[in-house]
């Protein structure tokens, strides 16, 4: 209950910060030193560094969460299709996914980005989905196959339950123990994309995004290491929050198993 409340609060704060306006006007001197009412000091644009970090964390959490959710949804559909179809079609789908999976995700993302020279959200969403779906679908497929071989699924089959109903009522809920850690991993990837694109040399440094902040942190690491350290702190906080949500004991697959069994 406490964890659910923490999650709800974190999401609310994240979403609020995601849409919060941030006055881009210079309110402080660039790189103003930290003080009591300016805890992390000011960044190179004269913005309150703490506020920038909070807004960037909220936006990155919201966009990364959205990307990861979409990727999981697409991967679930692919994994279900791979489990359902058999024979040549199954081999073809598996091979098609292996083709994409043979190259590191970041290499695909950077190649597609350079090929399209596009920084629109839709573009990033599409390239993220193309790059991560095979990897996610393969993991989910393995879990689906393991679950479909469990006794409670056999019982459900013998009770006359249809394939789609078994998938929706029993396999999908029980696959959450794999899907949720996978979600966390994909969220991490989603956070990293803007920074990776920055390394390629296409970043707008005023963007409020943790990936871009990491990149700026690297550029100013000697004179202003606090920027990089505080951004890592922001990522650590997001990870701690995600970890709480995706811990296996927070989900009770036994409930559906008992119902079926």
């Amino acid at each position: 209950m406490v964890r659910a409340a923490t999650l709800a609060a974190a999401l609310m704060i994240g979403l609020t910060l995601a849409v919060a306006p941030l006055n881009p006007a210079t309110l402080h001197q660039p790189w103003e030193a930290p003080r009591l009412n300016l805890l992390l000091g000011a960044d190179e644009f004269g913005r309150n560094a703490l506020l920038v970090l909070m807004v960037a964390s909220g936006r990155s959490l919201a966009s990364g969460g959205l990307l990861a959710s979409l990727a999981i949804l697409v991967a679930l559909v692919f994994a279900a299709a791979m489990v359902r179809v058999r024979g040549t079609a199954a081999t073809l789908i598996t091979q098609a996914l292996v083709v994409v999976e043979s190259i590191p995700v970041f290499v695909w993302i950077l190649i597609i980005f350079v090929a399209t020279r596009e920084r629109l959200t839709s573009g990033i969403t599409i390239l993220f989905l193309i790059a991560v779906t095979p990897f996610a679908a393969n993991i989910l497929r393995g879990e689906f196959l393991r679950l479909l071989d469990q006794p409670f699924i056999h019982v459900a089959r013998m009770a006359g339950m249809s394939w789609s109903r078994i998938m929706l009522r029993h396999v999908l809920p029980n696959a959450s123990s794999v899907a949720l850690p996978l979600f966390a991993q994909l969220l991490g990837l989603g956070l990293a994309i803007p920074g990776a694109i920055g390394i390629l040399g296409f970043t707008n440094r005023t963007d409020l995004d943790l990936g871009v902040m990491l990149f700026r942190g690297k550029e100013n690491v000697v004179d202003h290491p606090l920027l990089l350290i505080s951004t890592i702190g922001g990522i650590l906080l997001i990870y701690a929050c995600i970890l709480q949500v995706t811990r296996r004991e927070n989900w009770s697959p036994e409930v559906t198993q008992t119902r079926a069994g």
Binding site: F106, A184, Q185, L187, G188, L191, A192, G195, A196, I199, G211, L214, G217, K218, V221, V222, P225, L228, I232, I235, L236, Y239, I242, L243
Partner: peptide
């Protein structure tokens, strides 16, 4: 798990900081 969650380019960023 945390090290895997952090973007992979963060480690060389820290390495660069130490070098400089």
């Amino acid at each position: 798990g945390f090290l895997l969650f952090v973007p992979p380019f963060v480690f060389p960023f820290f390495g660069l900081a130490l070098l400089l």
